[in-house]
Amino acid sequence: MEQTATEDRIVSVIRENFSSEVISVESPYDFLTVNLKAGKIIDIIKFLYEKEKYQYLTTLCGIHYPENKTIQVMYQLHKLTENKRIRLKIALPEEKPTVPTLTNVFPAANWMERETYDFFGVIFEGHPNLIRILNVEEMTIFPLRKEYPLEDQTREDKNNDMFGR
């Protein structure tokens, strides 16, 4: 119960300070998740860092939803002193996914953002060195987007109804 109380507190704190930014709050599998508008995400994370001591960036990744034409970016923060975790999600338009960089708050975001750029093509504005990290530099696509299937779609020897997606 205590857990929910603090979680409610942090949600209300976010709502108080950034009321127009919060789209929805959910808690899938007891993990507090806040869906936000993309505009002030860095301000919100900075606020959580400075005022609420969420000072550990656990991870950051992209998720592609072709049916909504959006690419989501998920940030997961951890407050080590109280062992509270929070997940922040923003949705960016598929054609031009742009969001300011987080490297000024967390140096650890450097490679995570490069990875997200590498696989989803999300442009992190102000990033010191936004180049591909795991894939070759000559690559022209962003491979984790859903429009790039893993296997050659012209194959006829494999029935996809039976094997995988």
Partner: peptide
């Protein structure tokens, strides 16, 4: 420079049970 043995696990996983 990293990525010399990148095997696209995250993409592979999207197609595996």
């Amino acid at each position: 420079t990293i990525g010399y043995i990148h095997r696209a696990f995250e993409k592979l996983a999207e197609r595996r049970p």
